[in-house]
Design a protein around this nucleic acid. Structure first.
Lengths: 226, 226, 226, 226
DNA sequence: GATGAATGAGCTTTCATTCAT
DNA sequence: GATGAATGAAAGCTCATTCAT
């Protein structure tokens, strides 16, 4: 009788398709309307979280009718998944900037660290982290995909950088991935968590720089080849 | 008729009183019924998050009627705040165990690190972190209070420990609080975030130990007095 | 992703529990509120059919809020099933009146036939037939249960009556059930179908009597023992 | 904006024009597109009933766009009426086959009865009956028109046949129309209602034949001239 | 002439909250 | 003090209908 379970909250997990489009050309996400909807949805989802975001609010924010949203995305969950998928892609692209700067490691390390922190501490990124981790028990695929495209991908990228510098003889590192994770952790200091808990707004450049500098000192003391 | 603001979601912040009770004696929280309600509420809130937790579920889980809940807590938000307040207190108490172990710093540091991680990586603590950070934009007082009673309090406690060891000549540290934060960050490695994103279940003792050991090595290389 | 199928229209069949309550005492149907809801639902369902009946209309007609309906019946379909179940029971009870009248078969037969037709041609019964047959492809259990409790049960009851009269020597019948069905079909003539198609309102007593009399003549010519 | 009466459900009756086209030549119904739409609509309406049939489904089934449907039919109701009108015509045509078979009445009667039942018990015809009777309270014109073109027309046709046979001296009948109705009712036995209530699938040839034979025996006992 | 994107009212269902018992 | 029946606003989603292309 009760084959309708609209609000499947709680412990039950839901399947969400997060696969990257193979043929990104014809994707509905490319239409201007879809973009408009996704932008509206992003505002509402990130501000309120998945559950508290209403399709009404999203429609208003996006400037379309609810029916239009449903002609592009089959459900609230599908819309959310599409949004996360899109943002995940952008996340990976952002990192590519910090790949291979010139200069001695003592100068480059703080620069990379600062650039990373600047991205990570963006209020929008913090909001995204809250939203994704909040739904992670319900949509484990989303949580995992996001972790892999975000922190994990970042660590790998940075580990590759460290390896290149180690080959140049600037660093002496045993396990590059662990070293990369350690630097990321050191560099974010207390700032990320404080923002995540809304215990402070985005810190000043000086605060970030100080934390990153302290991280660099520890890291180079451990792994510096000199 | 509609003088209540039932669904105050979204961007508006809500005021929540998290102040520690000044007169803890006669507080309703001391009654057995209140404890029963809070325990039920904890299960439901942590499993589902604030929005997806329904008062019906909480009443059922707690084994009381909805009316009874409302006679102890004036609203869903007040119940949630009371719960967080209570758990915040317990959090602080948990840490007191790891205060002053015996033994040389090289042995003690990994032991403390492991004990901390064991607590921090508990699924219940991860769920709590998700739940609190998710509501932080809406209830900033809750987020801040939790951050202060949790991570911040932990850092201070651990910084005090470091200071004692520095006085013994085992460590050479400039800023104890920063050093404490750094050790915490190093010790959690990638494990905390992975769990927060539901990208892995609680890691094995061996994984935790390995991460903590690596953290200890870096920390002692930096701050060891030898 | 799409685990929600609210509107399962069309060919898919739905399971509906129509089992008679074993312990009718404590059934929710006994409460005054439930009765009130069922009475409102009957008006709306029979007037409009299942799909066109809205829970809003039912709530208004019953004089309760929608939420109240849902606290008694878990879904629109459950409410409908409960209604049918209840009416099915009443249907069987109605027939018991026509069981064993006195008098010679030539007199009794038209009397029984008229009484039956009077019930069958009630506008409420016609509406019920329309509603049940309309949903029968979707809820086959309802259709079958209704057929069995209605026409089939009526035939059996009447067949038993015929058998008693045959034992008295008034009738010479080979297969009582077939004979019963034949009398029913003859007696309803064109009146039932005409009403079912809304091609005429309930016919006058005279029209019914004429049809039943014609049926009785045919029946007695076939099965009369004289 | 809301000048349309989209959802006119419930007790209000709707006016539907079922008149046969006077100028059948230029009617839109003759175009291939209109035929395509009607065929799609038939599938969907008969499978799901009027309310549960969606214009989307009909458009998909017919292989045209929704806009195209609306350029041929002014509303869902108009489309439904046109469909019924068309099928009504076909119904009358089907009957013409059974008009004047050769052979003695004892042989011909069961043959005609079987042919009639075979048509009447077609699942498509059953579905149509359900659909039309379901909307009859809302579109009385449709119900009436259908009754007249279907059962009533069938009775008249068969009554004419009976009259011809009576003129040949094979039958002795007072009121031909009543006799025709009686034969139809006897011949369908319990089969039609059982199918209407979805209490059984289409019966086998043998079952139909048995019912028709029993009907013929009763009919001839009453009206046979021998 | 045909399309299908867009609309928004309306649908079924849920939920925080109240209040008579 | 405790209950749970009752409320009604609001949720996610659908659908007949329109209209720019």
């Amino acid at each position: 009788m009760n084959f309708d379970r609209r609000h499947n909250r709680g412990l039950e997990e839901a399947q969400i398709d997060l696969a990257q489009d193979s043929e990104p050309a014809a994707s509905p996400l490319d239409s201007a309307k879809a973009r408009q909807i996704l932008d509206g949805a992003r505002n509402v989802f990130l501000a309120n979280g998945f559950d508290a975001a209403s399709m009404n609010d999203i429609a208003r924010e996006a400037g379309v009718s609810k029916g239009t949203i449903y002609s592009y995305f089959s459900s609230k969950e599908a819309l959310f998944a599409a949004l996360i998928r899109e943002d995940k892609r952008q996340q990976a692209e952002q990192l590519s900037i910090y790949d291979d700067p010139d200069g001695p490691i003592e100068e480059v390390l703080p620069r990379i660290g600062f650039a990373l922190m600047d991205v990570i501490l963006e209020p929008a990124h913090i909001a995204q982290t809250r939203t994704v981790t909040a739904v992670a028990p319900k949509f484990p695929e989303i949580g995992r995909a996001f972790y892999e495209a975000g922190p994990q991908y970042g660590h790998r990228r940075f580990a590759a950088f460290l390896e290149r510098r180690a080959e140049k003889g600037e660093l002496a590192i045993d396990d590059f991935e662990i070293a990369a994770e350690q630097f990321f952790n050191l560099a974010q200091g207390v700032l990320f968590k404080k923002m995540l808990f809304a215990a402070q707004p985005k810190p000043s450049r000086e605060e970030i720089q100080a934390t990153v500098d302290a991280a660099s000192r520890v890291f180079l003391r451990m792994y510096g080849a000199g």
